[in-house]
Amino acid sequence: MSRVPSPPPPAEMSSGPVAESWCYTQIKVVKFSYMWTINNFSFCREEMGEVIKSSTFSSGANDKLKWCLRVNPKGLDEESKDYLSLYLLLVSCPKSEVRAKFKFSILNAKGEETKAMESQRAYRFVQGKDWGFKKFIRRDFLLDEANGLLPDDKLTLFCEVSVVQDSVNISGQNTMNMVKVPECRLADELGGLWENSRFTDCCLCVAGQEFQAHKAILAARSPVFSAMFEHEMEESKKNRVEINDVEPEVFKEMMCFIYTGKAPNLDKMADDLLAAADKYALERLKVMCEDALCSNLSVENAAEILILADLHSADQLKTQAVDFINYHASDVLETSGWKSMVVSHPHLVAEAYRSLASAQCPFLGPPRKRLKQS
C-alpha cells in the first residue's frame, strides 16, 4: 500500500486566492494483479454453464480479502454459449462490502496482453458476489490457432484489481511565511564533478583513453575500487588504474551511474553493462540491467540471455529466462542460440529441462510459493 502523499503547497495549487485553511483528501486504492494459466484448455468440458475456478489470491499475505477468477468455457447461458465468460469473485471478506475495479486480458504466445476488457467503474462486491463479462471473447476466435491465444493449448488470463480503501483527510492552515525547501541536487552536482573533471585525484585508463576521477567517490560506490585504493596496490601508489576489459562507451555509462545513480543509455548496452556491474560489484546497476534484459526477452535471444545471466550470477534474470524458455519451449528449441547452448553450456540445458519437467508435473513435489530491489 502506498504512503499517503503530503498535500501540495497551496501557493502551487492555483494562481488564484489562497485560503486560510485547507483539506486534502486521499482515497486510498490498493492495486494488484494475478495470472492464471489453464493447461490443455481444449479438453475443458463443453457443457453450457460449466465452471472452472482459479485458486484464491489477494494483494498480499496480510490481506484478508480473498478473490478468485471464474471461467465458463462455453458461456454462462444460452445467450453467451458462443463466448467464454469471465468473472472476478470475492471469496471471503471481513467487511460487509468492498468496491473494486478490474481489468481482464489474455496473454498471447509472446506474453503480450490482448483482448483487454475492464470495468468502467468500481463495482460493489459482497462475499460470494462476482462481476465480469458474460461475453468476454468469442470461442471461435479464441480457438483459432492463427490468433495465437492458446500457445501449446494453454489459456493464460491476466487480471488487474484495484480495491478502494478508506479515504484519509489531511488538513492544515496557511501561513504568510511559507518556506520552500529546494530539491536535493546531489546527483546532478556529483555528475558535474565527473563531467568537468574537477578536483580529480586519479586516472582511469580504458582502451587508450584516459578519464579523470575521484578516488573517494569510486571507493564509496564500488567495493572493488575501494579494495584497489585501500591496500598497497599499484593503483593506490600511482593513482592510476588500467581497465582492459570494458569498452570506453560502456565504461562511461558505468561511471555515470557511479556518480549519479542513473544510467540513461542502459537499454542500448544492458548486456555489456551487466558484465561491468558484476565485475565492479555495483549491485543496483546489475539489477537494473537484469530488468532491462528481462523486458527484451524473446524467442530468438532467450538462450543467449540465459548464458549471460549464468555467467554473471544474475539470479533474477536467470529465473526469468528459464521461465520464458519453459513457456515458449517449442519455439526456443528451434533457435540457433539454443542449439549452440546445447554444445557450449549443457548444464544450462539440463537446468531448463528440470524446470520444465517440474512445471508440467506438479505432483512430483509440493507447490512452490512464489514470493528486491534495493
Score class of each variant (00 low, 15 high):
Arg3Met: 08
Arg3Asp: 02
Pro8Cys: 07
Pro10Trp: 12
Ala11Arg: 08
Met13Gly: 02
Trp22Cys: 01
Trp22Glu: 01
Cys23Met: 02
Val29Lys: 07
Val30Glu: 05
Lys31Pro: 10
Trp36Ser: 01
Trp36Gly: 01
Asn39Tyr: 05
Phe41Leu: 02
Cys44His: 03
Glu47Asp: 06
Phe57Met: 08
Phe57Tyr: 02
Ala61His: 05
Ala61Ser: 12
Asn62Gly: 10
Leu65Trp: 09
Leu69Gln: 14
Pro73Gln: 08
Gly75Asn: 11
Leu76Met: 10
Ser80Asp: 06
Ser85Phe: 08
Ser92Glu: 14
Ser92Leu: 14
Lys103Glu: 12
Phe104Asn: 01
Ile106Ala: 11
Lys110Trp: 15
Glu113Cys: 11
Thr114Arg: 07
Tyr123Pro: 07
Val126Arg: 08
Phe133Val: 05
Arg139Cys: 11
Arg139His: 13
Phe141Ala: 10
Leu143Trp: 13
Lys154Asp: 10
Thr156Ala: 07
Phe158Ala: 06
Glu160Ser: 04
Val161Asp: 00
Gln165Lys: 11
Ser167Arg: 10
Val168His: 02
Gly172Gln: 09
Asn174Leu: 05
Thr175Val: 01
Thr175Ser: 01
Lys180Cys: 04
Ala187Gln: 07
Ala187Cys: 09
Gly191Thr: 11
Asn196Thr: 12
Ser197Glu: 15
Phe199Pro: 00
Thr200Ser: 14
Thr200Asp: 15
Asp201Met: 05
Cys202His: 14
Val206Ala: 14
Val206Asp: 15
Val206Ser: 13
Ala207Pro: 10
Gln209Glu: 13
Gln209Leu: 05
Gln209Tyr: 09
Glu210Leu: 12
Phe211Ser: 12
Ile217His: 06
Leu218Cys: 13
Ala219Cys: 10
Glu234Cys: 15
Glu234Pro: 15
Ser236Gly: 01
Ser236Arg: 05
Asn239Tyr: 01
Asn244Trp: 11
Met254Glu: 00
Thr260Tyr: 01
Pro264Asp: 02
Leu266Pro: 08
Asp272Lys: 04
Asp278His: 05
Leu282Gly: 13
Glu283Asp: 04
Lys286Val: 03
Val287Phe: 01
Asp291Glu: 07
Cys294Val: 11
Leu297Cys: 11
Ala302Tyr: 02
Glu304Phe: 06
Leu308Val: 02
Ser313Trp: 12
Thr319Glu: 12
Asp323Glu: 11
Ile325Phe: 08
Ile325Thr: 11
Tyr327Arg: 07
His345Thr: 12
Pro346Val: 03
Leu348Asn: 03
Val349Arg: 00
Tyr353Pro: 00
Ser355Cys: 05
Leu356Lys: 00
Ala357Ser: 04
Ser358Leu: 04
Ala359Arg: 01
Ala359Pro: 08
Lys369Tyr: 01
Arg370Asn: 03
Leu371Tyr: 15
